[in-house]
Design a protein around this nucleic acid. Sequence first.
DNA 1: CGAGTGCTTGAGCTACGTCAACCATAGTGG
DNA 2: CCACTATGGTTGACGTAGCTCAAGCACTCG
Lengths: 258, 258
Amino acid sequence: MLFADAPTNSPLPFSQAPDLVRRLNAGAALHPAPRCSQWALNTLCNPADLNADELAQVDSLVCEVRTVQRGANLYRANDPFHSVYVLRSGSFKTVVMHREGREQVTGFQISGETLGLDGIAGGQHRCGAVALERSTVCVIPFEPLENLCREIKPMQRHLHRMMSWEIVREANVILLLGTMRAEQRVAAFLLNLAERYGTRGYSATEFNMRMTRCEIGSYLGITLETASRMFSKLQQERLVHARGKQIRILDSAALARL
Amino acid sequence: MLFADAPTNSPLPFSQAPDLVRRLNAGAALHPAPRCSQWALNTLCNPADLNADELAQVDSLVCEVRTVQRGANLYRANDPFHSVYVLRSGSFKTVVMHREGREQVTGFQISGETLGLDGIAGGQHRCGAVALERSTVCVIPFEPLENLCREIKPMQRHLHRMMSWEIVREANVILLLGTMRAEQRVAAFLLNLAERYGTRGYSATEFNMRMTRCEIGSYLGITLETASRMFSKLQQERLVHARGKQIRILDSAALARL
DNA sequence: CGAGTGCTTGAGCTACGTCAACCATAGTGG
DNA sequence: CCACTATGGTTGACGTAGCTCAAGCACTCG
């Protein structure tokens, strides 16, 4: 109940964000120039080490901010690729389809993180992106972004880092799926989530997960029942306090040691 | 015995490759300008749709071709990142380390494919690359490559495709590790390998795998014993003919249906 | 209030891991 | 040439982590 409808976790992420988001949600989705430069640092639409002039060019790139309702698709697998997206508020899951509708969650994204980079290769998205709650994203048309990257070297560098970062993230998931047992997977998942919340300005020890046990299980390559059991087990071992989606990390060192 | 020392699979990959590789192995590793433009199409160091002038610039970028002995590291995890590599002949595995020396294979690369893109993010390589046989690679210093990408749009497009392609590849591995059972994993592995051999000019139905059962198992998230059992099972089911590392695909449709 | 959704927990089953023996091949040294 | 060793692969026996199926509980929403 405490967290029932809160759109994000309690500590507000960035000082300028609230009124900006309010403006956007009031219908600003159609307006251009949402001033990304006033927003979080080190996201794709606002890299560090740009001068004012260059920042203005980045701002001019983002011509749309889109609101996505809970459960709605930002894009689906096989949609044509035109843009990449930076999550301003809320959270997403990315899913790939197996045959016969069997789906697998390949990642969760929280605010500040980037979506859609998988689409560059084949000109169409290879996975779908579904909002886990009401979320807002910066839409960055990729062709203009590429053009900008040919003009501004730090911007180019930044894009490359973002893409490489995604490669590293996936390699870590592969490591998790290939070598860890269920309890370790859940522990690693929680630590990873905590760290990301931490770097984005939220609490790293207490947060409200937006995904279901089923989605967590899918992401971790286990069943929802096993995921649930592991949450219970970690709780019995006093490593976390888990009450549904509300998580408090009690002993992150021990979690890492598993 | 038939394949004991063959450095690559029998059908030669590209018409210009043999004498080039011979030159390189004869000590040309120190020579600059190895004329990548005369080499395979659609690799990182030779994208399609460049004009002659642009191709010359790409050639001038590759200032070294390196030979890596079987079992040797092209780079190790945590090495500083300076270059990306295109595999000209031979094959590699990429590995990440867990704690306590436990390692996981995150991918296999055959000639024409790209190595090292994971290093861009943090300025150092996150995985190690080990040659599965005597191999040669084009060394492409990344800073000059970035500069070139700001000048030649198709080159930029190409680099982005390569990176995105790697993201998609890893997402597919995640799908495999997250949803498939052992037999399906081995089948998917063989089909993937066959397809890649096919696109690189080798036979797609009969090839000589360079990796051990242990490496295959690690890559597929199963034990070497299970991997071995699955090869035997697929053989009993007449879907493949497997004699050690020598593989012949007998019924790829049935493999895909598993 | 009832229905729907998500979470937890138990009981039994099975796919895969573990451990171990054995074989084939290749390289080494006398 | 033949031991001898090392490496990689196969196969069997057995144990178990996690899956499946099922029941029941907690919340939310119309």
